[in-house]
């Protein structure tokens, strides 16, 4: 796998997760609506200056329909008659706060994913002596997901070629799910059985700490970032409790 460039990619994997968790916590702790909006602005700016404009753009696309729905749900009242429609400033402010929370968390987490290097993550977990099995589950799923998606597409194509009618009404489409799902499940079980044997033979169940092959460095900057995030979250909690 090619090593990704950029500040986020050079950061220790745990720093990235800590920052995302910190952003998520702060989004709900800082006073609304100004707090979440300022936080989103800060996170989006940091994403842009660290070369993660694509991740920030994707986050905005993910959030866009939600922002519209938030504005409609909280900011616009009344029935179906256009004359009865009312706009609430307080509602729009609440929608803006919630929209900014979603934007901040989505941006931070998609920057994390863009910088996520599974091998570095596994080595970081092994080096700390944390649960390698838990990390294995996440990384193995990331590798399995595209394979299963390709298999699903192939099964869909094959069943259509055999005359499966997956169009028409909802009931017909729901009925067509079984001939599509059954081969996927059989494939899943076969793969799981064979993989389980391979993992057993290859010592994944061994009760010894796994060796970290090339653990990522945990630099002073990483530790400062994590402590700062932790400190900000603690301050946010303290402010909430006292206020």
């Amino acid at each position: 796998m090619t090593r990704r460039a950029g500040l986020a990619a050079r950061a220790h994997p745990f720093t990235l997760f800590a920052v995302v968790a910190g952003v998520a916590a702060l989004a709900f702790l800082v006073p609304a609506p100004a707090g979440p909006i300022a936080l989103y602005a800060l996170v989006a700016s940091l994403a842009l200056v660290t070369g993660n404009a694509r991740a920030a753009g994707r986050a905005a696309l993910v959030c866009l329909p939600l922002w519209v729905l938030l504005a409609l749900l909280h900011g616009v009242g009344g029935g179906f008659d256009p004359r009865s429609i009312t706009v609430s400033r307080a509602g729009l402010a609440a929608a803006a706060a919630q929209g900014a929370r979603l934007g901040a968390v989505a941006t931070a987490s998609l920057v994390l994913f863009a910088a996520f290097d599974p091998s570095r993550f596994l080595d970081a977990v092994a080096a700390r002596g944390w649960s390698f099995h838990a990390a294995y589950l996440v990384v193995a799923t990331l590798q399995a997901a595209p394979r299963f998606r390709r298999r699903a597409a192939a099964i869909l194509e094959a069943q259509r070629a055999r005359g499966l009618r997956a169009g028409g009404g909802i009931a017909g489409r729901v009925r067509s799910l079984l001939p599509l799902t059954a081969p996927l499940v059989l494939g899943m079980l076969t793969e799981a059985d064979e993989r389980a044997m391979a993992l057993e033979i290859r010592g994944l169940g061994a009760r010894v700490p796994r060796t970290a092959l090339d653990p990522p460095p945990d630099r002073a900057g990483d530790r400062i970032a994590r402590w700062t995030t932790g400190g900000l979250v603690a301050a946010g909690i303290a402010w909430r409790v006292l206020a």
Binding site: H133, Y136, L137, A140, T141, Q143, A144, A145, R147, F148, R149, R151, A152, L184, V185, M188, L189, E191, A192, D193, R195, A196, M197, L199, E200, L204, G205
Partner: peptide
Amino acid sequence: PRLLALVPSAVALNLA
């Protein structure tokens, strides 16, 4: 190992 092999496949099934 059985659980470690089954879970990623089941998650991939959810996504597929």
